[in-house]
């Protein structure tokens, strides 16, 4: 592996991303995943990591609207993509209904899985404004949580969906 290292081109890669609505250019070592670029190059540490192998969901973000695992997404493949992270969820000082519901209804305890869960839930509600509890559980079945036993997470998503529907706004 180290002999291979000598031969490999270690120049940085350069891409343009749209992160939480803002265009950013970023240079990075090309082996970095989207997770590493968000956290280490863009200082967006709201996105967490629990395994870096696609086994926990802590790093979930929306890429072009779809919940993906940033730990298994080559940053190189995100050139031109639109990324949404937990930092972009609130509008100004106003919490997104999902955020408000999670902090009011026990959806977040230690908070570590929360960003991944929130972004996954947003991906769900953007497509399905009125999901059943079963559908919410299915959509979140790729996000491990160690604190809540999921019940208050499901409560929170259901509550946020209700709020969003009442507002008649797209999440």
């Amino acid at each position: 592996m180290n002999t291979a290292l000598q031969k490999v081109d270690q120049r940085k890669a350069h891409i343009t991303l749209r992160v939480n609505g803002e265009e950013v250019e970023v240079s990075f070592a090309p082996y970095k995943t989207l997770l590493e670029v968000l956290r280490e190059e863009l200082d967006l540490t709201g996105t967490k990591h629990g395994c870096e192998l696609g086994e926990c969901g802590a790093c979930a973000v929306l890429v072009d609207g779809e919940p993906l695992l940033s730990c298994l997404k080559l940053a190189l493949e995100c050139d031109g993509a639109s990324i949404e992270t937990v930092e972009g969820l609130a509008e100004g000082p106003e919490l997104h209904p999902l955020q408000a519901a999670f902090s009011d209804h026990g959806g977040s305890q230690c908070g570590y899985c929360t960003p991944g869960v929130l972004m996954t839930a947003k991906g769900l509600l953007d497509r399905e404004p009125n999901p059943s509890r079963e559908r919410i559980k299915e959509a979140l079945s790729g996000n491990l949580c160690r604190c809540t036993g999921y019940q208050q997470i499901v409560d929170s998503v259901a509550d946020a969906a209700r709020t969003l529907r009442e507002r008649g706004v797209k999440a």
Binding site: G46, V86, L95, A100, S103, G111
Partner: peptide, 14 residues
């Protein structure tokens, strides 16, 4: 609650 849902909270690796 607010810090936890906005990604502001800094865990050690952050």
């Amino acid at each position: 609650g607010r810090e936890k849902v906005t990604g502001q909270l800094r865990y050690a690796d952050d």
